[in-house]
Amino acid sequence: INASIYDEIQQEMKRAKVSQALFAKVAATKSQGWLCELLRWKEDPSPENRTLWENLSMIRRFLSLPQPERDAIY
């Protein structure tokens, strides 16, 4: 996982035409506020920051699903 995940998140929300609230809920079981802060600060993903790493790993797993599967989840 690297910093490009933040751009991938924004691209996916645009592509699927979903809100931050919906993306946060389905991709990371988090709130819109959490995702907003995540995208604002764009912390460097590092395994040392375990909570951030685990949350980004969950999002990465969601983004790695085939597009039709992600669309069905939304």
Rank of each mutant, 00 (worst) to 15 (best):
I1N: 08
A3L: 15
A3D: 14
A3C: 11
A3Y: 15
S4W: 06
S4D: 14
I5D: 06
I5G: 01
Y6C: 04
Y6Q: 00
D7H: 08
D7C: 15
E8L: 06
E8W: 06
E8G: 01
E8K: 06
I9M: 12
Q10R: 09
Q11H: 12
Q11C: 08
Q11I: 10
E12G: 00
E12C: 03
M13H: 01
M13E: 01
M13L: 15
M13F: 00
K14Q: 14
R15N: 04
R15E: 03
R15T: 05
R15D: 06
R15S: 04
R15W: 04
R15L: 06
A16Y: 00
A16C: 05
A16V: 05
K17W: 04
K17A: 11
K17R: 12
K17I: 00
K17H: 14
K17V: 05
V18E: 01
S19R: 06
S19F: 00
Q20Y: 09
Q20S: 05
A21I: 04
A21E: 14
A21L: 05
A21M: 10
L22A: 05
L22Q: 06
F23A: 00
F23L: 00
F23V: 01
F23D: 03
F23N: 03
A24F: 00
A24E: 02
A24M: 01
A24C: 00
A24S: 10
A24L: 01
A24P: 03
A24W: 02
K25R: 13
K25D: 15
K25L: 08
V26A: 11
V26M: 06
V26C: 10
V26P: 00
V26K: 01
A27K: 02
A28L: 07
A28P: 02
A28Y: 01
A28N: 08
T29W: 10
T29G: 14
T29M: 12
S31A: 06
S31R: 09
S31M: 04
Q32W: 07
Q32N: 05
Q32H: 05
G33W: 10
G33T: 14
G33K: 07
G33L: 11
W34E: 12
W34K: 03
W34Q: 03
L35A: 03
L35I: 10
L35P: 00
L35V: 03
C36E: 08
C36A: 13
C36W: 04
E37G: 05
L38E: 03
L38M: 08
L38P: 00
L39V: 06
L39G: 02
R40M: 10
R40F: 13
R40D: 08
R40G: 06
R40I: 06
W41T: 12
W41Q: 14
W41D: 15
W41Y: 14
K42G: 06
K42V: 03
K42L: 01
K42Y: 04
K42C: 06
K42S: 07
K42F: 02
D44A: 14
P45S: 04
P45E: 01
S46A: 10
S46Q: 09
P47S: 09
P47R: 11
P47Q: 12
N49W: 01
N49S: 11
N49A: 07
R50C: 11
R50V: 15
R50Q: 14
R50D: 10
R50E: 13
T51L: 09
T51N: 07
T51E: 12
L52F: 05
L52Y: 05
L52D: 06
L52G: 02
L52S: 07
L52V: 05
W53G: 06
W53K: 05
E54W: 11
E54Y: 06
N55C: 13
N55Y: 13
L56G: 00
L56W: 00
L56P: 00
L56R: 02
L56A: 01
S57N: 06
S57F: 12
S57A: 13
S57R: 09
I59N: 03
I59Q: 02
I59M: 05
I59E: 02
R60E: 08
R60G: 06
R60V: 06
R60K: 11
R60F: 01
R61E: 07
R61D: 13
R61W: 06
F62E: 00
F62K: 00
F62P: 02
L63M: 04
L63I: 01
L63Q: 01
L63N: 03
S64A: 12
S64F: 11
S64H: 07
S64G: 08
S64C: 10
S64I: 05
L65G: 01
L65C: 03
L65P: 03
L65K: 15
P66K: 09
P66M: 04
P66H: 04
P66E: 11
Q67K: 12
Q67I: 12
Q67G: 10
P68C: 14
P68F: 15
P68G: 14
P68M: 11
P68W: 07
E69L: 08
E69F: 05
E69C: 04
E69T: 14
R70M: 03
D71M: 03
D71S: 06
A72P: 04
A72F: 10
I73V: 12
I73A: 13
I73L: 13
I73S: 10
